[in-house]
Simulated scan of single mutants.
Amino acid sequence: MKAAHPEVVAAIRVNPGETLRKGRESKNWSLPDVASRLNLTVTSLSNVETGNFDKLPGNTFARGYIRAYAKLLGLDQTALVQQFDHYTGTDSQGSNVHSLGRIEEPVRLSHNILRIVSLLLLVVLVGAGFFWWQDQASMRGKDPVSTNLEHVEVESADGTTQIHPLDEPEDQAVVQAQGSTSSLPLPAGNQTAEVAPTVPPVVAPASTVPAAPVHVVPVTPTTTVAPTPATTTPVTAPSTPAVPVAGAGLVNLNFSADCWTQVTDGNGKVLLSGVKRKGENLDVSGKPPLTLRLGFARGVQVTYNGQAVDLAPYSSGETARLKLGQ
């Protein structure tokens, strides 16, 4: 048997999409109207009508489109599918695609959805990092904080070493001095005399038997007076005025109230540091300029090389800072 001529085979091939297009136009339906009814895109439906089946997802989907289109128009579905097979040179045997009222196209994930999901993930990561940073900061805040105060060690005459902070020590000394002053015992006043109770006379009970007369001796009440403590007045030996050494400055400090005091010479050596009590009179000599810090400036009178020093220009509140011998 001879094979058919190529021109004859080409003439037999009929595009089923052309038949579908004519059926649609006979009903005066537009392409978008049919596409919405079949749940297809206008582009896919246009490819069916023009015979561009290679632009569709595959022959199986193309047969499904043709069946659904033919059913909507009331045409023979089987004949149009056979035309499709002859037109494309494929075999429809084994195909599980049947006539469908609505055809769902392959779902493709939109790029916009990918961008939104990526943005949400980025926001979650940034938020998690921020909360982690706050948690670490709060944990660091709970650690003991080391103080930045500088201290100075002062060795006194009795061999003991005193440590004083250099950051506003006078304010702390004022509080300490005021606390020690408030805790002093009050002077004892006049005490009330204690009077012993009067002892009543003792009378012998009466008896039927006559007895010798009993003489009652009255008891004289006694008064006990507590002794008044004697007050002693401290006797201060007259002090000899100190004479400044050549090339050195002499500071005299006369305390009328408790006051924290620090004296530093020109080399930075601490000559005096501590709380001085009311009534003390000190002379400090050293290389000028002498730096003087007072925690309670109103409670001390200062002279430098025999001349009185006015502390008012150097006072700030209850404290004073000044340099002598500049």
Rank of each mutant, 00 (worst) to 15 (best):
L31W: 05
S207V: 07
P32D: 13
K323P: 00
D171P: 00
T50D: 13
L121Q: 14
Q307G: 00
G189T: 15
R13Y: 01
V123T: 15
L292T: 09
Q77C: 02
A4V: 10
L120Q: 09
V225L: 08
L271F: 08
T160I: 12
N254R: 12
R108Y: 01
A68Q: 00
D283F: 04
S99N: 03
K269Q: 14
N281E: 01
V225R: 10
N112E: 09
T208A: 15
G127D: 14
S95V: 13
F296R: 13
E18Q: 08
V309F: 09
Q83V: 00
S36P: 01
V117M: 15
G299R: 02
D265S: 05
P244N: 04
Q83H: 10
D135Q: 12
T208F: 08
V34N: 00
R108T: 03
E280T: 00
T160Y: 12
V48G: 08
R21S: 02
V209M: 11
S239C: 00
V251T: 14
R277P: 00
E7H: 03
V97L: 10
A68R: 07
G159C: 03
V202W: 01
L166C: 00
V309L: 08
K276V: 11
R115S: 02
P241A: 02
W29K: 10
P169M: 08
T224D: 14
A173Y: 10
S182V: 05
S92F: 07
S92I: 07
A246D: 10
S207R: 08
N47G: 01
G317Q: 04
S44H: 10
V302I: 12
R277A: 07
N15I: 11
P200H: 00
P201R: 11
L186K: 06
G268Y: 05
A246F: 06
Q178Y: 04
I103Q: 07
I103V: 15
L271S: 05
P244R: 07
K323T: 14
P32L: 06
V174G: 05
R63S: 02
F84Y: 14
W260G: 14
F84M: 15
L100R: 10
P185M: 04
K142T: 10
L100F: 07
L149P: 01
G299N: 11
E318I: 11
V309S: 12
D85V: 09
A257C: 01
S44D: 13
V107A: 14
T291M: 06
N281M: 01
G23F: 03
N148T: 08
Q77D: 14
P205G: 08
T233A: 02
L292K: 03
A297C: 11
V175Y: 08
G17K: 05
P57A: 12
S118N: 10
G58M: 08
Q83M: 15
D135P: 07
G94C: 04
F53I: 01
P218G: 15
L324T: 06
T303R: 06
A312T: 09
V124G: 11
L114A: 15
G268P: 15
T303K: 15
L56T: 13
R102W: 02
Q301P: 01
G299K: 04
W133C: 02
N47H: 14
H111D: 15
G279Y: 01
E104V: 08
